[in-house]
Design a binder for these strands. Sequence first.
DNA 1: GCTAGTGATCTGTGATCACAGTTTGGGTGA
DNA 2: TCACCCAAACTGTGATCACAGATCACTAGC
Lengths: 233, 233
Amino acid sequence: MSSTPALAELPLLERRTLADTAHEALSDLLASGRLAPGDRLSLRQSAAAFGVSVMPVREAVSRLVADGALEVAPTRAIRVPVMTAQDFRALAETRMAVEGIAASRAAERRGEPELAAIRRAEAAFRAEAEAALPDRARAVRLNRDLHFAIYAACGLNPLREIISRLWLKAGPVINLDLRAHPERLLQGFALHRHAEALAAIEARDGPAAAAAIAADIREAAEFIMSRGGLRDA
Amino acid sequence: MSSTPALAELPLLERRTLADTAHEALSDLLASGRLAPGDRLSLRQSAAAFGVSVMPVREAVSRLVADGALEVAPTRAIRVPVMTAQDFRALAETRMAVEGIAASRAAERRGEPELAAIRRAEAAFRAEAEAALPDRARAVRLNRDLHFAIYAACGLNPLREIISRLWLKAGPVINLDLRAHPERLLQGFALHRHAEALAAIEARDGPAAAAAIAADIREAAEFIMSRGGLRDA
DNA sequence: GCTAGTGATCTGTGATCACAGTTTGGGTGA
DNA sequence: TCACCCAAACTGTGATCACAGATCACTAGC
């Protein structure tokens, strides 16, 4: 086709719309907990903050609403959903099931590079959690990195995307709680489960990996629900 | 607040935007296979067909793109994704895992009303599939109704929504194949697996229900992939 | 006859405007 | 001092316009 074969090796550059960028930025705000349940979001204010018109923000928000990461109240106001205790429990159970599958597959199918990446992520989180003065925001990010290092090893892209969406919904609740009760991070619950998961993945033990991840999720959820910060009904 | 307590019992009527309606219509087109892989979609033409401006269609399409049910090609053209064989296999495996969980939970937690609904749906599909002249479009819809009657009984709304999204992605491929090879419907593969699933749910046997649903999905996927209609790499 | 180029027409993306409905803050009444 | 009310400012939704880039039919040139 072309007389210069070198052109065939060019990486096809991805198209990034402003809406994509806005979506990514808002997702990060949600995942990191800088947007808490109940917080309202204005299209015009967000657009002004981003330095663009409302259109891209509008598109980004509509995607997040479709995912349930945001919601439009009957009064048309956009806000981070305030989950009931039942909602949160259903979300946690769904995560236990879905992320358990991913962990199980990861244990059974991981290659050496994936295992190495998971080891690094586990070590990084452990180092931060055991530090004298843990950086909460950094620990949250490293926890996420570890989990997704595992899920990336499951070899199923659609499953990984599903989990990303679930984290977007759970993020605000988890981070809001973590902000109020940072001691949970220090007590090493997660550390123990992460170590179990890593050992299971090393041993290619699918069920054990699933159990470890499910326990990690369950314990965090139970801790949060025991705090009673969630609405009823 | 109000002097007439009866008002408190009014069902709060949901807000339906034009974008919601357009999204629903496009989703139906995808799920029913009237939009085939590779088909292009024009915002302006769709808007004209719906009798609205491009705005609502644009929002609906952007949601479907976020779900992977549509994609924007690097040339900016919107089209139904053409999956590679690998993509389709990963999607099928994800469905087997996720829908298997839902079926398992449904078997263990279903009440009598849910069981009755599942029985009705199974009978309806059977009647259509065993008819002298089966209506393909109707059979597709009844198959969907049966599956979602089961998933509705799992008691996990987030899980049900995840499965809806997966069906939106798989719909076009499955229906395109069904259009080309209607005999699969007649050979009763699905009928057998459905009967197994129903029996397992009646017996509250979670693993058996998961196995039946997974087999249903696997067999349909293998049939399609054996036809070789999917691209490689 | 076939390729390369060219212009009209289409595409999605973004900005801007219009509108109806909601919130809010300040004032007015008792 | 408190409840009410009204107007101004805000909200998301939808329509319309502008623009850069892609497509396609067509023609000029070899």
